[in-house]
Simulated assay, not measured.
Amino acid sequence: MSHLSSPLVSIIVAVFNGAKTLQQCIDSVAQQTYINIELIIIDGGSTDGTVDLLKANQENISYWVSEPDKGIYNAWNKGLTQVKGEWICFLGADDFLWDAQVIELISQQLEKIPSSIRVAYGKIMLLDNDAEPLHLVGDSWGKVQERFKQMMCIPHQGVMHRLSLFDCHGKFDESFRIAGDYELLMRELKTADAAFLLNVVVAGMRQGGISSNPKESLVLLHELRRAQSMHGLPLGRFWVFALVKVYIRLILWKVLGEKLTRKLLDVGRRGMGLQPYWTQT
């Protein structure tokens, strides 16, 4: 079946020294049943064999470059200068499209979305340290619309951005280190709606790093609040509650140590009927 009359989908991947995981990311795009895709990879000047990997996969990459950059948002902005697609998805080298049919399924829904909607998103699968599934993340827009004004509750690896979003609002703000994706989406979604892609798991996302480090979580929360202030949004209870939880984790980390704290946090999750997370990342 030909998809050349369907929307061109651009996948932009930022990578720096990601040779261990980038091949899976590239393969997940190359194996899609939907053929109207372009893959753009922006490498920050890797020294771990990433460039050799890019050269070896050139037939599956529409554009790539390897040069020093100023971080992930600078890399994604570079990628935006190369896109030709109507819809754009942003991934890191640790991420990958969940299965070979996912862009096919997404495209069928994107074709039905009104042109006034510039953001569409589906669920993503969080993975543990062994790349095994932990749990799905992503709720419908009706459930998260108000909370989004206080927290990043849309999984960015699952977001499809219409090209006109950037024509209207510009590129990522590179002064952010972690929350630049949230600030960009805030420009649109503080007054507009997003579309939720039904029955779609867009990508797999490896956990660790920022997600499970309370000090990095503090940086993230402060950047989220800066983005909210930029857009005139008041301090909200969801953000305050998240900040309190991070400080509790920091105190427990210091008093009990990281290993015991992770176990204790998962005891609490089980008590709430949730799957273990902290001992798996």
Rank of each mutant, 00 (worst) to 15 (best):
D99T: 03
C25A: 14
L53W: 11
A194I: 04
P68I: 03
R237W: 04
V51E: 06
E223T: 00
F241E: 09
A195E: 14
H169V: 07
K70M: 10
G92M: 02
W76K: 08
D27V: 07
D181R: 03
G85Q: 08
Q145P: 00
L265D: 11
E59V: 06
D130Y: 04
D94Y: 11
S6K: 03
S2E: 07
L250Q: 15
G138W: 03
E38D: 09
L189C: 11
Q82F: 09
V51P: 00
R187E: 15
M205D: 09
Q58H: 10
G271V: 00
Q157A: 10
Y63K: 02
M151A: 06
E38H: 03
G92Q: 12
L218A: 01
Q32D: 07
Y121L: 04
H169S: 13
L22Y: 12
H156K: 00
L165Y: 01
I35T: 04
K143L: 10
L189V: 07
G236N: 04
V267R: 09
P276W: 02
D94M: 05
G204D: 14
L265K: 05
H222T: 05
L185R: 08
N17P: 14
T279W: 12
S66M: 12
W278D: 06
P155K: 14
V255P: 12
K171N: 08
F90D: 04
W98N: 13
L127S: 10
L165T: 00
P214F: 12
T47K: 05
A75K: 12
L8M: 09
K123E: 13
N199G: 09
D52Q: 13
I11Y: 00
M125Y: 07
Q280H: 11
K20A: 13
P234T: 08
G79E: 06
C25E: 14
M272R: 13
I210Q: 08
A192G: 10
I41G: 12
F172Y: 14
L134E: 05
E111N: 01
L127G: 03
A30T: 10
Q157W: 04
W87T: 05
A195H: 13
K171Q: 05
V9I: 15
